[in-house]
């Protein structure tokens, strides 16, 4: 009796997660139908976002999300791989432990703090260096890169650490240097895991709100240069959700949320189900 009850209790809880995910999609879809019916595909391809005349095109925000994430990946991938190599192959065991744990702890610092640092400390420097406002696509990309770096380095290191010692030793036994072993054995061996980890980091970066809200500018324009202020989907949501005054405005914001959810779902699913699963099988 109690046995069945307990089993059902656990089963219902497990189903709840499926239910919630489905529910999220349904709710976001329903809420955004008005915008979709009004604008159709223009919602995704037009960049005019003018609440005063009830015109909403998400292109600038989508572009900003993709561009800032791309920039962040461009900056953080080489450094993260460098850090991962340092942590898994070069550092003295004592340093390895200390740096390894600090990297993991830094990954736990709330992203809003990266945003505050960006606004108060980094943007002024960028302003002095480049002229202009400082706030914009470049600032967002850099702050995002720094925010994602600890997570990226930690998961990349974990992927590299899956290479069996004996395989590395065989390459050393043939007269390989550390770098030979890294590039010919560790990276090819852990390739799927490393790529999966990087894409997973990308999935996180694209949905990141607080690290970029401070420094992006929230201007609904496709940026003309890397220094222009622009916006991204999460930034728009964070800034405008409580300001929306018409139902079409609301619906458009929900449309943005749905777009973001689908984008990140796809990215994370590719990382998890293609690369990381392949890595686990190997």
């Amino acid at each position: 009796m109690i046995d069945k009850l307990f089993q059902n209790l656990t089963r219902i809880s497990a189903f709840l997660i499926l239910l919630i995910v489905a529910w999220i999609f349904v709710v976001l879809f329903n809420q955004s139908t008005e915008a979709m019916q009004t604008f159709g595909l223009d919602f995704l391809t037009k960049d005019e976002w003018a609440p005063n005349v009830d015109k909403f095109g998400a292109y600038a925000a989508i572009f900003g999300s993709v561009a800032s994430t791309f920039l962040a990946m461009l900056l953080s991938i080489p450094i993260a791989i460098g850090v991962a190599i340092f942590l898994s192959e070069i550092a003295h065991p004592k340093i390895k432990g200390f740096f390894g744990v600090s990297v993991e702890l830094l990954a736990a610092i709330p992203s809003v703090i990266y945003g505050m640092w960006g606004l108060f400390y980094f943007v002024p420097i960028l302003r002095d260096l480049t002229g202009g406002m400082g706030i914009g696509l470049l600032a967002a990309g850099i702050v995002l890169a720094i925010m994602i770096l600890p997570f990226m380095a930690a998961v990349t290191r974990d992927a590299m650490n899956t290479t069996p010692d004996i395989l590395k030793e065989s390459a050393y036994a043939l007269g390989g240097t550390q770098w030979d072993v890294i590039k010919d054995v560790i990276i090819p061996y852990a390739k799927a895991g490393i790529i999966g980890s990087l894409i997973l980091a990308l999935g996180r970066a694209i949905g990141e709100t607080m690290a970029v809200t401070f420094v992006m500018g929230n201007v609904h324009k496709v940026p003309t240069s890397i220094l222009s202020p622009t916006t991204s989907i999460p930034v728009t949501l964070a800034n405008e959700f409580t300001e929306a005054d018409t139902s079409l405005y609301f619906s458009s914001l929900f449309g943005l949320a749905l777009t973001l959810l689908i984008m990140s779902f796809v990215v994370i699913a590719v990382a998890k189900f293609y690369f990381l699963r392949k890595a686990r099988r190997a």
Binding site: S170, A171, L174, G175, D184, P188, K191
Partner: peptide
């Protein structure tokens, strides 16, 4: 050591084919 290891080779407990 690089030179030494090309003169003294090693075979391990388990086959260690490289991923290539």
């Amino acid at each position: 050591l690089i030179h030494l290891r090309t003169r003294i080779g090693m075979i391990f407990q388990k086959p260690t084919a490289f991923p290539m």
